[in-house]
Design a protein around this nucleic acid. Structure first.
Lengths: 122, 122
DNA sequence: CTGGATCCTAGCCGATACTG
DNA sequence: CAGTATCGGCTAGGATCCAG
């Protein structure tokens, strides 16, 4: 057997637990963090509004990532049976508890923009 | 032209700035955060010690990710011209400023372990 | 309007072998 | 001891089309 890993990679043995990996899983990828951030900013968003706020995203990725976040209890969807249908997404309590981390990451990013150019200033 | 993006994807227009993307870039992937965390825990580490603390990593990934972190001024390497050679890695000030974020992510992970199993409890 | 299903590609990452 | 080079699989994510 190569490794009897769970869903996430820990140090395999070594008693090390990298619990931040759980958080990373939820924020990883190109879109998840942007989606959470936008829902946070606007409190709740309808499906098509995302594409207005985030022009580059495709419906596939939007749908897929939103589903991921709902399945992991970060985001909550409310369906109104109108014609045409209306679906509103909002943050769960768990999702809201993620915001401070995104804020911290945002702050760090602002104070460290220069790493984008400065590749190795000898 | 499709999009005149910089190195990172912002919302392309929309005035939105996702500065946490900068931070994500530094913590992204399978190993970068684990490496930073281990250097933080042990203050400084020699190359081969990493493989002791992180058994699953290959030398390729270790070397590659360490280089990335050095190039982005997160990690600092000190070379001692011994025989055999000895190289020690430590966190820069910038790298240390990343630790609180990893701590926060770690805390969030500990308090939200259940998302790993609970896929959608209706 | 709100999605799901398919196909396809670039890049991440692992396995393995080699070097100063 | 401390790396680099090469080959290749897997998967995240984009394009496009279809559906309730």
């Amino acid at each position: 057997m190569k490794r009897m890993q769970s869903e996430l990679q820990y140090g395999s043995n070594a008693g090390n637990r990298y619990d931040f990996k759980i958080t990373q899983k939820v924020l990883a990828g190109k879109w998840k963090n942007i989606l959470i951030w936008n829902i946070h900013l606007h409190k709740n968003i309808r499906f098509n509004k995302f594409k207005k706020f985030i022009p580059d995203i495709t419906t596939k990725m939007l749908s897929q990532e939103l589903k991921f976040l709902c399945d992991h209890d970060i985001v909550e969807k409310t369906i109104y049976n109108y014609v045409p249908p209306m679906v509103v997404y909002s943050l769960t309590e768990r999702g809201k508890s993620l915001v401070p981390i995104l804020v911290a990451m945002n702050q760090w990013g602002i104070h460290n923009k220069d790493i984008l150019e400065n590749k190795k200033e000898s």
